[in-house]
Amino acid sequence: MNIFRLAGDMTHLASVLVLLLKIHTIKSCAGISLKTQELYALVFATRYLDLFTDYISLYNTLMKLIFLVSSFSIVWYIRHHKIVRRSYDKDQDTFRHYFLVLPCFLLALVINEKFTVKEIMWTFSLYLEAVAILPQLVLLQRTRNIDNLTGQYVFLLGAYRSLYILNWIYRYFTEPHYVHWITWISGLVQTLLYADFFYYYFQSWKNNVKLELPA
């Protein structure tokens, strides 16, 4: 475990907590894409299959549980909570996210490190996570005024993977034979998808104006 990875995990945890805070305290999911949340729940469900079979560390197990429970409870909140669901704008959240699932699965069947069920599911979760933010980014472009918590949520979600990239660079130089092209490339693609969001987020922060993405 290095500082970049710890910072990445903490940033990821912070993004989840910001989202839960928003939904649980102000009972609103305005501007949040249910589809991205569903994709993330699927990402964690397919990536943490080894939760009960392989024990790496208490930290690892604890964080996996937190991400699993939080992602599924966020989906539940937006879908079933009597107050929160009213603030979900399904007419705007129209990205056909099922079209992302199949290509990622097929790609995982073709490009993976080992042709086993666990490995293919893990690789699928990696590809899916790379594109899971797309429905949310599309929704942000449609939502005129993005509230602060939503902006912070997306920023932290993008930042965590950038920190993971630093972690991979660090591990590449410190651990012999540490080479994981699949992880590195999908992590890079994922981070690049946030590039324009980061730009506008930084501009809004620098000029102290409301965050707005061009349509």
Binding site: N60, K114, N167
Partner: peptide, 10 residues
């Protein structure tokens, strides 16, 4: 190397 050692990250 085994699955566990290759997937020690979140």
């Amino acid at each position: 190397s085994g699955y566990v050692s290759r997937h020690d990250e979140l």
